[in-house]
């Protein structure tokens, strides 16, 4: 017989014992370990998910802050640009005003130099005219220019008005000082005597005369007494010439300013 019933019973019992043994030593411990590990992994995953959520929140907060920062930076940049433009405008205006002031100052300096140059030109012109006139008079006559000047001077004395003569005589008598005759050159004795005679004839016999040389007169002779002065020199002619020259320059200057402004 193939089936031994005792063995069947024994094997069934053996198998049930094996079921109990394996339940106790295999399935329960293994399943517990697996469950514990799964729980632990689930907890770790949950923790990781929570951390990820935190990270996402922080990232969003950071992005918001970044956007706010960008906005503020843009605002500040625009403000700085506006301030820079205003400063640029102010500095440009300041520079323009400085340039205008500098130009004005340069113009003044040029004007002064022009005046000096004109004075120098006048002075040289006078000297040249004097030299030319003296040379011309010297060439034309035997007499010297000085003699002609003295003649002219004496003629002027003679031609003085009666009231002038009276006023000058009164002042001459009231002062003990002699009449001062200044000339640009040393007068020869003959001419001195002629001058003294003319003075005495004009202002009275008591008038004494003193002669001085004044090179600044250029070419001429003058009489000084008690604050009064009678003179003849090339200066008077030259002064007229200078006035004419000034008038001519004044008419030219406005025209020049007009062209500079353009």
């Amino acid at each position: 017989m193939l089936i031994d019933w005792f063995t069947v019973i024994a094997q069934a019992v053996n198998f049930l014992i094996l079921v109990w043994l394996l339940k106790r030593f295999l399935y329960q411990p293994i399943l517990k370990a697996v469950d514990a590990r799964e729980k632990r992994i689930a907890a770790e995953l949950a923790s990781a998910a929570e951390k990820e959520a935190d990270a996402i929140r922080e990232q969003e907060a950071f992005a918001r802050k970044n956007a706010e920062f960008d906005r503020q930076r843009k605002t500040l940049l625009e403000q700085a640009k506006a301030e820079a433009a205003a400063e640029h405008h102010r500095l440009t205006e300041e520079a323009r005003m400085d340039v205008a002031a500098l130009r004005e100052r340069q113009y003044s300096m040029l004007h002064g130099e022009f005046q000096n140059l004109r004075t120098e030109v006048s002075r040289r012109t006078m000297n040249e005219v004097f030299a030319i006139a003296r040379q011309t008079l010297g060439d034309l006559a035997d007499d010297t220019l000085q003699a002609r000047m003295v003649d002219v001077f004496m003629r002027r004395l003679h031609e003085l008005g009666a009231s002038e003569k009276q006023t000058l005589s009164a002042s001459l008598q009231a002062s003990p000082d002699p009449v001062l005759v200044r000339s640009a050159f040393e007068l020869p004795q003959a001419q001195r005597e002629q001058v003294e005679a003319a003075i005495r004839a004009t202002f009275g016999a008591g008038a004494s005369t003193r002669f001085e040389v004044e090179s600044g007169l250029i070419s001429g002779i003058e009489l000084l007494m008690q604050g009064h002065k009678i003179a003849w020199s090339l200066d008077s002619y030259l002064a007229e010439m200078e006035q004419g020259l000034n008038a001519l320059l004044k008419t030219q200057q406005p025209a020049q300013k007009g062209t500079e402004q353009k």
Partner: peptide, 17 residues
Amino acid sequence: MLLLAVGAKLVTRNLTH
């Protein structure tokens, strides 16, 4: 049975989580 039970006991006595 002995082999299975003892083997299971030996392995599961030091289970780690």
